[in-house]
């Protein structure tokens, strides 16, 4: 398999993960698509620097989160465009209507969280364990645990609103 084919395969495999990370940082659909492209490009460039010190999934989550932080900084500077109550009309829902409402609430609530909590909770919901979150964010395990518990409390409060 050529290098290009390998990168294409990686991108296709992890596109849903990257799309979810983009969705937790951007409500506007057009901007979210731009962010996803930006993340994908960054992954393409960065895969060459992957030294295997973590799983490929962890590595990609790290790159995606870094691009998302960059995006948040840029957009916040440009204008307060992160209208957190924007509906995510294109959400995929496989369950009932009630489930769809819950999904909408979860994503909206997540975008209301401070960035440091949002990162931890999104990785946790993605299924990463504490050690992987530590590696992705470059903070110690105690900090991850503290942020995770505070994020859960805040998220629960937001969901109940």
């Amino acid at each position: 398999m050529s290098k290009k084919d390998h990168i294409h395969e990686v991108l296709l495999q992890y596109a849903p993960l990257m799309a979810r990370i983009a969705a937790t940082h951007e409500a506007d659909q057009a901007l979210r698509e731009d962010l996803l492209q930006d993340i994908s490009l960054a992954v393409w460039h960065s895969v060459e620097n992957f030294i295997g010190d973590s799983s490929m999934k962890t590595f990609i989550a790290k790159v995606a989160h870094n691009r998302a932080v960059d995006h948040v900084l840029k957009e916040t500077r440009r204008q307060d465009r992160h209208n957190l109550s924007d509906p995510l009309l294109d959400l995929v829902s496989t369950d009932s209507h009630q489930h769809s409402d819950n999904t909408y609430d979860l994503m909206t609530a997540m975008r209301r969280l401070p960035l440091k909590f949002r990162q931890v909770i999104s990785l946790q919901l993605e299924g990463f364990n504490q050690a992987e979150i530590t590696h992705t964010l470059g903070i110690n395990e105690a900090n991850v645990a503290k942020r995770a518990s505070r994020a859960l409390v805040q998220l629960q409060k937001l969901m109940e609103q």
Partner: peptide, 15 residues
């Protein structure tokens, strides 16, 4: 819910 909230993706177009 989080997994189900994956935005619709056209992976071929993205690629």
């Amino acid at each position: 819910d989080y997994k189900n909230a994956t935005p619709k993706l056209d992976t071929a177009a993205l690629l």
